[in-house]
Design a protein around this nucleic acid. Sequence first.
DNA 1: AGAGGGGAGTGAATTGATTCAATCCGATCC
DNA 2: GGATCGGATTGAATCAATTCACTCCCCTCT
Lengths: 337, 337
Amino acid sequence: MARRAGVSVGTVSNVINRPEAVLPDTRARVLAAIEELGYVRSESARQLRAGRSRIMALLVLDMGNPFFVDIARGAERAAREAGLGVMVCNSDQSQEEEAEYLGLFAEQRVCGVLVTPADATGGNLEAFARHRIPYVLVDRVAASTEHCAVCVDDVRGGMLAVGHLVSAGHRSVAYVSGPDDLYQIRDRRQGALAALAEAGLGPEALVEIPSDRLDVAAGRDAGARLLGLVPRPTAVFCANDLLALGVLQSLYAAGVRVPQDIAIVGYDDIEFAAAAAVPLTSVRQPATVMGRMAAEMLLEEADDTGGVHRHRSVVLQPELVVRASSSAPRGPVRPTP
Amino acid sequence: MARRAGVSVGTVSNVINRPEAVLPDTRARVLAAIEELGYVRSESARQLRAGRSRIMALLVLDMGNPFFVDIARGAERAAREAGLGVMVCNSDQSQEEEAEYLGLFAEQRVCGVLVTPADATGGNLEAFARHRIPYVLVDRVAASTEHCAVCVDDVRGGMLAVGHLVSAGHRSVAYVSGPDDLYQIRDRRQGALAALAEAGLGPEALVEIPSDRLDVAAGRDAGARLLGLVPRPTAVFCANDLLALGVLQSLYAAGVRVPQDIAIVGYDDIEFAAAAAVPLTSVRQPATVMGRMAAEMLLEEADDTGGVHRHRSVVLQPELVVRASSSAPRGPVRPTP
DNA sequence: AGAGGGGAGTGAATTGATTCAATCCGATCC
DNA sequence: GGATCGGATTGAATCAATTCACTCCCCTCT
């Protein structure tokens, strides 16, 4: 036993956890032994005793989407301030992967889970709830009163996006969507329809271009399909910026001018939206804030011993960021001397 | 004890780990009890006994860089095939963060670590080696014979990039670099200088624009500084694509045409490089492959009981992808009818 | 001087899964 | 019928840290 190196047993524990309760003399001796032996206390053992680990899990839909990376950043910062580690995992929008990861988290006895659900039925999480491990929904309204949630008002986001297009005179808007399992997709559509209705336009003014993935490649594909539409919509609202970037690439390759021929609005306002071929108008979501809030709520719940915690549901507001892809183009680029 | 629910003790363990060694009858009874009680075996307990966990750590320089996300993807896939979880962490190029995370990994007794070192001195990893936890360097040549490594030939990458610019007639190239602690930065510079030398140009042909961060914002800043240079280089080689995108934005905002006035070459060939304002020429790195190989080498080392494992160092080759940012511009965009 | 108090340190119990030597039991063999 | 064999099952030991009731010892107060 490494502790023998010093002289004692559970005193080592005191040196590490309550140094003030140990004489400076003894403490120094133990610390020296620790240093000499390169001793590192085993988390597994503490965990076993404590019943849960000091790791928080974050399960996102797509690690390749900078939006989720921002969420992870916010969550990670909050977690580290509390001395916890974060395990970031990727469900890839698959219910099976999600279920598998949730099982892994239960085995690990993580202290809590932040999750962007891929499973619209909520079955995975319902099953997970048995384990009494706290979890917080991220980027999704609360599905029950049994947990906290932080999300962004996606209906409003859809309204902002399409409202902007409608007020610029567009009368037919394509919606490059995604799997209908995802609330985000449905809510944004609903917002889009609401914006059209407000301008006296019916649901036929929204031409849906479905897509099963939500990445740049899927966007390119959707762009190609958009070009084949007759009559062709004069504007596109994309369910996220990755799709929008793909659509933009497609249009660009086909020689269609943005925004003159077709206007584009994306969603998320990822960093790369501003750096796109045509800087992208997008609906900004406070991703980092969302990640941080979710983590803080989770910590509050996890640390709650006296049953003081009350589940909350926070809805943040999105913000429209208008750039070139949906507004009158600036004049021709001025060459520098 | 949950196991009592059935009737036995360590038989539960057999049901789970060696089902064939248990009578179907008993097995069914135990499984029923497991189901009924919602039992999930505790990883902490197994870990404690096994001495190490079933989690692999991945410590990258910047989660916000899609290049590292691709590495993570490759590693994660390989790890999951072996039934392991991956804990992705972000050192943010900070030696302190790196040290802190390595400490965390040691406490967790992770089965191995994949790391893109932030600490050029190698001190952090040297200290970490005491714990006898295998680790593999990713995107960095082996620093000693005590570990495996997978990297990409950055000198060659720098040569490809600048060689391409030189052969297009450029005689003065800016190098938007990063912290000199990073081997990647140094090697790419060395490659750039070699390419210039090959064309009979001295080191003064490479104008360095230093930068401490490697993100889009730092790129915008570098772009501003580039514009102030007299005489102004006719081409820029950026140490990564994020910087390049930032530079591009800066130039674009100032009305400088790319590639006519200034050509740009990036590094990494992230997905967004192709979708940039001017599609970016870049040096492609096999990130996913690198992540996968690193994970596989780590698994081989971790699973090696008989001392069969020999440390290896794999060097992959980069590839130049030429796009508009460094080549003659295509004709004016053709409007569609 | 003896009792009482308190700070320092001890070590057994606890946590849950795994492992392994030991036990049990039915069946086969001599 | 007794011995032997082997598959099924058991339960104690193990892993490392934490916790807590307990011991020790020294100091102070009466």
